[in-house]
Structures are given as structure tokens and as C-alpha cells.
């Protein structure tokens, strides 16, 4: 399949790209097979994701999933964010070819990892970049 107009728009003009100083939690996950990486920054107050930003390295779907994911989680309660499914993410990206679904899986894994960290500690997490 060819990429949708929504997808191309996210790729050309990614939303919420960049670092987020003062983030409540920062998590980076890697797909060990293809090497794609997604780093997610969340600023959480009173159980609500106030803002989200990201950095990404990888194929276009991984870059776009970062953009789409951060759009989806902004303003959501943590439980609402946990309820985001792969299908919802793929639909918001304007669709992804089957062989690129791993990008959506990486994005959700990163989100869940960040939310799990939030659940275990309310203190700011430091990122191990090694």
C-alpha cells in the first residue's frame, strides 16, 4: 500500500517533536530486530498527561507513530492513555502496511513502559542513554 495523506503530513510536519525539559517521565524503547528507537517525554500532573513530546530514529512509520501517539495522549488521563490500542494508533496514522505494524507496537510499548514507570514512582525519571 502507499502511504496516506495523513501519514505524509505527519512525516513532513511532525507534531510534538523534540525534547521536553522538566518531563515527569522519559522512556526510550528500541526494536532490537530493526533498530528503530522511540523516546517519549511525558509531563503528568494530577494523573493527567499535560503534554507529550518525542524523538525517533527509524523508518517513516516509526517517525509518524511518535507524532500520532503524542497527539493521542495529550490531555488524557493515564487510564485513558493505557486504553489506546494498536488499531487506534494505526487508524490515527492514516493506516500502515502490515509489515510496518511493528512501528505502532514500538510506540505503544514505549507508552506503556512510561506509564508503568509513572505507576512505580512519581519522581522524575532519569534516562539511561547507554
Amino acid at each position: 500500500m502507499t502511504y496516506s495523506a495523513v501519514f505524509k503530513e505527519h512525516l513532513a510536519h511532525p507534531h510534538n517533536a523534540g525534547e521536553l525539559p522538566g518531563a515527569t517521565v522519559v522512556v526510550e524503547e528500541t526494536n532490537p530486530v530493526c533498530g528503530d528507537r522511540l523516546r517519549l517525554y511525558l509531563l503528568v500532573e494530577d494523573d493527567q498527561i499535560e503534554t507529550a513530546k518525542y524523538l525517533a530514529y527509524g523508518c517513516p512509520p516509526t517517525l509518524v507513530c511518535g507524532s500520532v501517539l503524542t497527539d493521542l495522549v495529550r490531555g488524557k488521563k493515564i487510564q485513558e492513555a493505557l486504553a489506546i490500542t494498536k488499531d487506534v494508533l494505526i487508524a490515527a496514522a492514516g493506516g500502515l502496511p502490515g509489515r510496518k505494524h511493528h512501528s505502532a507496537a514500538l510506540a505503544l510499548e514505549t507508552l506503556r513502559s512510561a506509564l508503568t514507570q509513572l505507576g512505580t514512582s512519581t519522581e522524575e525519571k532519569s534516562l539511561n542513554l547507554t
Partner: peptide
Amino acid sequence: FVEGEGLLINLDLQGVAVSTGSACS
């Protein structure tokens, strides 16, 4: 610091066609 397919599609959106040895592609 840049993955090949991400760069390839960005170039393609600007009208430049190349190829890559990246994993995903």
C-alpha cells in the same frame, strides 16, 4: 544518526528518488 528509509521517504516527498540499504525497506 539517520535511518535510511526515513531519509528516502523525506527525499521522495521533495521529488528526489534514491534507494537505501536500510533494514525496514
